[in-house]
Write a protein that binds this DNA or RNA. Sequence first.
DNA 1: ATCTCTGCAAATGTTTTGCATCAGC
DNA 2: GCTGATGCAAAACATTTGCAGAGAT
Lengths: 129, 129
Amino acid sequence: MQRDTAQRRAIRDVLLAANRPMSPQELLEDARSRVPNMGIATVYRTVKGLTELGWLVTVELPGEPQRYEVSGKGHHHHFSCNACGRVFEIHGCPSEMDKMLPKGFHMESHEVILYGRCDDCNQSRKQRG
Amino acid sequence: MQRDTAQRRAIRDVLLAANRPMSPQELLEDARSRVPNMGIATVYRTVKGLTELGWLVTVELPGEPQRYEVSGKGHHHHFSCNACGRVFEIHGCPSEMDKMLPKGFHMESHEVILYGRCDDCNQSRKQRG
DNA sequence: ATCTCTGCAAATGTTTTGCATCAGC
DNA sequence: GCTGATGCAAAACATTTGCAGAGAT
């Protein structure tokens, strides 16, 4: 990750503009509006490199491809829209999770994912009636 | 899923004995002690069939292969051991998750996954000192 | 005996890698 | 011009499917 290429700039710009975790496929589609011939391999190589640099962190949701988001946002969780498939950041954290632990188990971290409909998808449902 | 074959019996028995969600690979390894030549395709076909019958439900954890567990256990979540990689059922549910929702978002379901060390792995750490 | 189920191997879909060429420095 | 980065295509890996033969009924 030494050179500042058009492809890398495109991927960084797309991620900063979207402000939500994106999959390699989503990234490729958006980045191609800036660098039309970009290959998927470049996306994978770039997000891997940016993750090793600490500029990105991976976001893994059950049963879905790995996503990437800009790092440095502190502890947070995600909301996955059942209608449009996009994933959003959410803040806050449920408490009392340690009460769920079986005896002898020790918790080191946790993951919370909420599913439902995002604001955009709720709006368009209302508009349609 | 009409015939009662040795392969299907093996897979059902392994799942009932383990009492935790298992991946196709785990299932194959355990089931081969009963049916040595079992193929991985049979495992995939069987868990798919048992899921359609409602006898199994899928358990998907971020970044990990799909697991299967015996159904009918009611609402619960999972604990993934960072040491041995096994996944366990946990009961109870954090509250106040709706407070994490951004404006306009509507929650339909949720997923909670705790990570840490299971009882077995904590015990063996203690024994070693 | 019939027809489903199985094991193998080939196909699929996703991510990774090899390599000749391109382009940032 | 040197050498890292890219695009393409092939490889790797997990899961699914096609098919001939095995086995449950």
